[in-house]
Simulated scan of single mutants.
Amino acid sequence: MKKITILLLSLICFSGISQTKTTGIINLTTNMTASLTLNNTTSKATLVLTGPFDRWFALGLGVSSGFGMGSGDVVVYTTSLTDRNFVGTGAPSTDSSQDWTTLSNIVLSGVRTLTLERSLTNADMNDFQMPYATTNSISLAWARSGSASTSLANHGGANREFATGTFTVLGNEKFSLESASIYPNPSNGNFTIKTNSSISKVDVYSQTGTFVKTIEVNNDSKDIEVSVNGLSSGVYFLELQNDKEKSWKKIVIN
C-alpha cells in the first residue's frame, strides 16, 4: 500500500509540472517562418510569425492541403493584426472575437516579426482549438501579397502553400526560455541572463522596436554576462533565441 501511495503521489506531482511543447521554427517560404509554442501551465499559445515588412501576409491554423477555405482560422497582418475566418475563396472575414494579442511587432532587415498570444482553447467556434494534451501536430496554410501592398487582395497562385508542424515536448517549464531571468533589472547596462535552457543569440531592441545590437553567445551558454554600456536610459527588449525557441524579456536601463 505504501508503494502504491508513493507512486500515486509521484504521478500527481509529475502531472503538476509545467510543460511546454513547440513546433520549433517552420520555414514556410522566403522571409516567412512560423513557430508555435503551447504552454500547459498558462494555457496559452505563443505564435512567432515572420513575413515581409512591406506587404500583407497570413497564416491559417488547422488548415491542410486541399481545404475549401471553410474551416480553420487565420491571422492576417496588413497594417495591424486581425483574427479572421476562412470563407470560401474570398478574403477571410474578420472574426467578431479578436482572440490573438500582439506582444511585439518588430521590423529588421526587411522582415517583420510578430509575437502573438492566445488561449489554447476558448468558446469561439471560429477558432482552431489547441488543447495541450492532444495537440501533437498542426496543419498550416500561409499566404502573402505578390507585391508590396497592405491591401488584402488575391495573393496569386505562387504566394500560398501548406506546411505541417510537429510538436516536441520541452519538458518542465523551467527548462524553457520563458523561465529565463535577468538581474539586476533595472540595470546600469551590465546584467546577467540566467536560464536552464541554452541560449545561442540575444538581440536587443529599443522600446519602439528599433534594432540595437546582437549579442552572440558561445557554446549555447545558460548564464550570460551582458554589457550594453552607452545605451540611453529607458526600456529595452531582449529576444532570446536557441534552435527551438524564441522568448522576449524586458530590461530597464538606468
Rank of each mutant, 00 (worst) to 15 (best):
G234L: 00
T50C: 04
N185D: 03
T42E: 05
N105C: 08
F237T: 08
A141D: 06
D203T: 10
S200F: 02
T30F: 05
R160E: 10
S139R: 12
S18V: 13
L120S: 01
V202Y: 01
L170C: 09
W56F: 08
P186A: 02
G24M: 04
V212D: 01
S197N: 13
K194R: 12
N31D: 15
S221C: 06
D243Q: 14
V202I: 15
D73T: 08
S179A: 15
K249Y: 06
K246E: 05
V75L: 11
Q207R: 12
I26P: 07
P186W: 03
N172A: 15
S233M: 07
T33S: 14
A45N: 03
D54H: 05
K250C: 02
S80C: 06
W100Y: 15
F175C: 08
L7Q: 11
K44W: 04
N219Q: 14
T101C: 01
R118P: 09
K201Y: 04
V76N: 04
F162K: 06
G90E: 03
N136L: 11
T214S: 14
K194V: 08
Q98P: 09
L240A: 00
G189A: 02
E178S: 15
D223N: 14
S18P: 09
S35E: 13
S71E: 10
T135K: 05
K249L: 08
K244D: 09
Q98E: 07
V228R: 01
N254D: 12
S96A: 15
S93P: 01
F162T: 09
T23R: 04
L140W: 01
N190E: 13
T82F: 06
K246N: 11
Y77K: 07
V252C: 05
G156N: 03
S149L: 00
L28P: 07
K201I: 07
D203C: 11
I106Y: 08
A153E: 08
N188W: 02
L231S: 05
W142M: 03
T94S: 10
D243C: 06
P186S: 02
K194L: 11
S233Y: 07
G66H: 07
D83K: 06
S109K: 12
V252I: 15
V87P: 05
T29L: 02
K246Y: 07
V235H: 05
T89R: 09
